[in-house]
């Protein structure tokens, strides 16, 4: 193990926190859908990838400026979220939850295929309007892309938290999440909130896709970001907005510490599975996560 170095550790943790916020943003899309509709969205990573493709493709193929391409990706993903709920999921209402899960796996494969068909198999870039020059803050070296990504995540995490906890829509969504039957007796049109939750997943995916696509480049591999969502939401709790944030931060930091301290010894790879080790440990001691409600145990 490399010798413990405080400055090195601080750098790893800081960087992990920035990345973690970006994980949290994507995990939030997953949590909102799970909370409101009980569906587990296995296509969250593909949603992100597809949004990134729209943004990169619009800029590359149609020559759109970044902001226009980004707005198009956002609008496209909102429309996609609504459409997916309406066309695919609504007919499945009342069916076993496994049917919905299978539908999301199907849509994941479809999105990967369509993205390759429409935009080709190569890697595209999203030219984020930020500097490449890293910022130096004392011993810390901070890439502006990560700072911007973290800032965007933070703003939207705050906005979604407010929306969910304080706004009328949010209160109604929580009501739907707690009991569809009772919510409907209150005059709440449950299907409208299902559609709303999926549209929010679209918003989150668009933001995540643009930021992550800008950092990593845009190809089918970008969908793998969806796999990071699982340790995040299992750690934080499948149905907790706060849990998504805390889980995201933990996964970001753990990944970086593993990369900094263990990878040099074993030659790499621990970065990728360290979060899953944590996830499995959490499943054994607290299956509903740090902030999740206990009823998850029965799922």
């Amino acid at each position: 193990m490399p010798e413990f170095d405080l400055q090195f550790t601080i750098a790893l943790v800081t960087n992990g926190l920035l990345i973690g916020l970006m994980y949290a943003l994507i995990a939030l899309g997953f949590v909102l859908v799970y909370k409101a509709t009980d569906a587990i969205n296995f296509a969250q990573g593909e949603f992100v990838m597809f949004a990134a493709f729209i943004c990169a493709g619009a800029a590359d193929l149609a020559g759109m400026p970044f902001w226009v391409a980004a707005a198009l990706a956002l609008a496209g993903m909102i429309a996609f979220g609504f459409g997916f709920e309406r066309v695919v999921l609504r007919p499945l209402l009342g069916r076993p939850i496994i049917a919905v899960i299978m539908a999301t796996i199907g849509i994941a494969a479809l999105l990967r295929g369509v993205a390759t068909l429409a935009f080709g198999g190569g890697t595209r870039a999203i030219a984020l309007p930020v500097d490449d020059e890293p910022l130096f803050l004392g011993p810390l070296m901070l890439p502006p892309v990560q700072l911007v990504g973290a800032a965007v995540s933070l703003v939207f995490l705050a906005a979604f938290t407010w929306l969910f906890l304080k706004s009328r829509m949010g209160v109604a969504m929580r009501a739907v999440a707690e009991s569809q039957q009772v919510a409907t007796a209150m005059g709440i049109d449950v299907r409208r909130y299902f559609a709303f939750a999926w549209a929010l997943a679209g918003v989150v995916s668009a933001l995540g896709g643009i930021v992550w696509g800008g950092m990593l480049g845009v190809d089918n591999q970008l969908a793998l970001i969806g796999l990071k969502v699982f340790p995040v939401v299992i750690l934080g709790g499948l149905d907790s907005v706060v849990g998504a944030v805390v889980g995201g931060l933990i996964v970001g930091v753990v990944e970086n510490l593993a990369a900094g301290y263990f990878d040099p010894i074993v030659g790499g790879g621990t970065k990728d599975f360290a979060p899953y080790v944590l996830m499995i440990a959490m499943l054994m001691i607290r299956p509903y996560g740090m902030f999740g409600s206990r009823r998850i145990e029965r799922v």
Binding site: V171, E178, V182, M186
Partner: peptide, 20 residues
């Protein structure tokens, strides 16, 4: 059949939902 995670006021406010 109350929403047990919410306050009394939030529950009652949900009753106002149809009028909003």
């Amino acid at each position: 059949a109350l929403f047990s995670g919410m306050t009394v006021l939030d529950n009652v406010m949900l009753g106002r939902h149809v009028h909003m």
